[in-house]
Amino acid sequence: MYGTGLAKGLMLTLRHFIDSFVDDLRYGLRKYSHSTDNFGLRQGTEAKGVITVQYPDEKVAVPERFRFVPFLIVEDEDHPTRSGKDWCTSCGICAKVCPPQCIWIVRGNDPNTGRPVPEPEAFFIDIDICMNCGYCAEYCPFDAIKMDHDYELASYDRTSHHIHDKEKLSKPASYWRSIAPTRAYEEMLVRGTWEHKDAAKEARRGSASPRASSRAQETQAEAAPAAVATAAAEAPAPPAAAPAEGATPWSEDDAKREERRRKALERKAKRAARSGG
């Protein structure tokens, strides 16, 4: 009969209309409770349709791999020895691999010797050019540049706000661990420690028995993930709290580093004495 197809379609829209209320009733007042379980369920595959996200009051948290604009990792402020130090060694791979070429790095030079030091002197990213592709983070050999999850960046003036300099780009390592606990943990496994790759290498070179120390780090790492995941899921907390005895992951390295520094000083003193003599 002419018109049945039309009626069928209209029935479907009616069903959608009714379903949306039935769904609301099913959750009742709980839909206003901002409960996380509720939200995940209603935005997942089991829900019917999509339920509007009440944006500023509730936000769809972005997944770990999400990429927006890049940021640089610096050591946490409460790090005992490297507080506030860059992870970046200014190797320049991010600037080379950047498709629209929006990264500028000034390699740092030692003011006295003029030799390059493994830290960038300046770092700029023009976020008006950046295409959020994530290559810089993907190909950085030092895990020093990462893609941020903070998308709330709208501004009224692009000339002053859209070239991010080093100060604006720098965020602590704990922040990265808080926004991407799983990936931070995987990277840590590859590096072997929560420390920066160079620091880890130094530590390994410094320790008398490298195999033993790496085994120690492994066991530590095995203990870490669960703690990291839970800690990071709730708040930006450094995984310092990970090991059960409360020691920081770098405390073990600290002793070695102290030892090494003492030895280096001794050597230096000896050399100075020799050249002076």
Partner: peptide, 10 residues
């Protein structure tokens, strides 16, 4: 997804 901004829902 992990919480990052205020009001983020996981």
């Amino acid at each position: 997804s992990v919480s990052n901004l205020t009001n983020d829902r996981i």
